[in-house]
Design a protein around this nucleic acid. Structure first.
Lengths: 207, 207
DNA sequence: CCATGTGAATACATTCACAGCA
DNA sequence: TGCTGTGAATGTATTCACATGG
């Protein structure tokens, strides 16, 4: 029995991309079938948790056999809506912006940078990978014209909130935030915050 | 009454760096005192949660007044053991490695890159920021000599596990992993995994 | 048999609400 | 009074354990 229309905890949604990543890896190794047990070992979650997480969305496995990798992979892509490619804008053309622009991992996993913006006049017009860095003044038009819903913030902390306001105003609903500061956005907008130093600090507690 | 010696949930430890970051920000604005209420608004956690989290480690506030920012900041630094600087090695001198090497946010928050390694012969010897890229063969000696406990992995997924094994063998106990793959390490070693695409994918579910 | 899918039980995390103190 | 610190209550998440069906 499919439970697809009931409330799914956010923490479950957060694990789905990890399941998807593991499946893609297995698939690239030529494997056809896996089990909650095997995924458990690869990912470090309990097998019961993996089965329960998946059960929020339907029945993907076969009793006595396990999961058909290709089918489960495709299903997760649809659940996460990454079966088509999401166009993104990148704001910030510093070192981090460069690394993100040159990162090959977006395209293969459902995301594509379509434009790069920066506030620094010196950066405007310079080439960065396949793109030309555009001034912030042009971002509103790009967001509207290309109906952009996803953006990456890679600017200093002091500028991040202003950029976020621009993005929200332009209709963006998902922000990957690399600036080390909490962003304030309306509830309809999702923010995923990446702070490597916070990660390091939470590990040193245990040393 | 201080509870400092009882078990503290990992999820609480994970929030402390965010409290610390907010306090440093307030402090830089010249503020001297804050409250769980104010931190709540800045960070998006409930004030009760902030008070309870802090209560695992002691009593840092004054009833009727709030928290003395400088004192709480110093206390959190000590709890997280970032009151001194942690030396780190960086493995991987690609675009991401470059961005990390040039990132100014480590030094100011208790971390310092002391050496950079890469397996690619073309990269060996090239300058990267203040460092010279060293061959992987030299990493063991560096880890031992400098008693390194913290490392950053910024290599392709296929190489990440091998690098992790080297690091663990060399005595590293905290790994910041940028490779899009799950690492298998002994329980004494902590891994903090950064996967921007997983973050993006978990947001697109809601679009 | 074997591994899924899932209610029930347990464990964990958050919020409530208020006593206690500056 | 105003805000902390914290037991008790509530709400969430994980694990258990087994019926089910290939």
């Amino acid at each position: 029995m499919s439970n697809s229309n009931q409330h799914v905890p956010a923490i479950v949604i957060g694990r789905l991309p990890l399941y998807l990543r593991a499946l893609t890896q297995l698939s690239s190794e030529g494997r056809r079938v896996t089990s909650s047990q095997e995924l458990s070992e690869k990912l470090g979650f309990s097998s019961a948790q993996i089965r329960k997480d998946l059960s929020y969305f339907g029945e993907f496995g076969k009793q006595g056999t396990g999961y058909e990798i290709e089918f489960l992979e495709k299903s997760l892509r649809e659940i996460l809506k990454v079966h088509h490619v999401w166009d993104m804008v990148l704001v910030g053309a510093g070192d981090l912006g460069h690394a993100l622009a040159n990162y090959g991992g977006f395209e293969t996993r459902g995301f594509s940078i379509v434009a790069i913006f920066d506030a620094n006049p010196i950066k405007i017009g310079t080439r960065l990978g396949d793109w030309r860095v555009q001034p912030m003044e042009e971002i509103r038009v790009t967001l509207r014209d290309k109906k952009i819903q996803v953006a990456i913030i890679a600017v200093p902390a002091a500028a991040a909130q202003t950029v976020a306001d621009e993005l929200v105003e332009g209709g963006v609903r998902a922000i990957l935030n690399y600036a080390p500061t909490t962003l304030s956005v309306p509830p309809r907008v999702k923010v995923y915050h990446i702070d490597p130093v916070a990660g390091l600090q939470s590990m040193t507690y245990y040393l």
